[in-house]
Computed example of a mutant assay.
Amino acid sequence: MGGKPGSEPEDQPIGVDAPRPRRSRSRWARTMWVGLAVLCFAIGVVGIFLPLLPATDFFLLAAICASRGSRRLERWIRANRFSGPAIDAWERERAISPVAKCLTVVMMSLSLTIIYLHTGFNLVFWAVLAVLVAVAAFVLSRPSPSRGQRRDSN
């Protein structure tokens, strides 16, 4: 992430029809962008297992932040086996994989069951149910990624 300014290649693709964000000039700003990227990536990993944290959104945010602080970190996030396919599918087709859809619905059901066991049928339960149903409807309404559309990563 260090290195000489301008030592990172500028010709690496970062997304579909996306303008390349300018890399911050100040060392302090780059450090802050990298720190934010790492934080967002970590939250995205947690979001794989917790239904109310959208993993793909945090992975996308991590890639955006990394592009301002470190092209090398951005390439790593996009090539990572957990975040790369989700970022690529979302950027290219606004799609969510069937496995991710299934895992989302299962984890939301588990979360709702736990909330019910702790609170019963009260206002909290019904509010969480409404949010989870809306999120599940959105996730299930997204198309699945086309086969063979994954771009090659370096």
Rank of each mutant, 00 (worst) to 15 (best):
M1Q: 02
G3D: 03
K4N: 07
P5E: 08
P5Q: 06
E8V: 03
P9R: 15
P13I: 06
P13S: 13
I14M: 14
G15A: 10
P19S: 11
P21F: 08
R22I: 10
S24P: 00
W28P: 00
R30C: 01
A37R: 06
L39A: 14
C40N: 13
A42P: 00
P51W: 10
L52A: 10
L52N: 11
L52G: 14
T56L: 04
F58D: 06
L60G: 11
L61Y: 00
A63G: 10
A66W: 05
S67D: 12
S67M: 14
S67Q: 13
R71K: 12
E74C: 07
R78E: 08
N80G: 03
A86V: 03
I87A: 04
D88L: 08
A89P: 04
R92V: 00
E93K: 00
A95L: 04
T104M: 13
T104A: 13
T104I: 01
T104Y: 14
L110D: 01
I114D: 01
Y116T: 01
Y116L: 10
L117R: 11
W126S: 05
V131T: 02
L132I: 03
V135K: 09
A136E: 11
P143D: 05
S144I: 03
S144N: 14
S146M: 07
S146K: 12
S146T: 11
R150P: 01
R150D: 15
D152G: 09
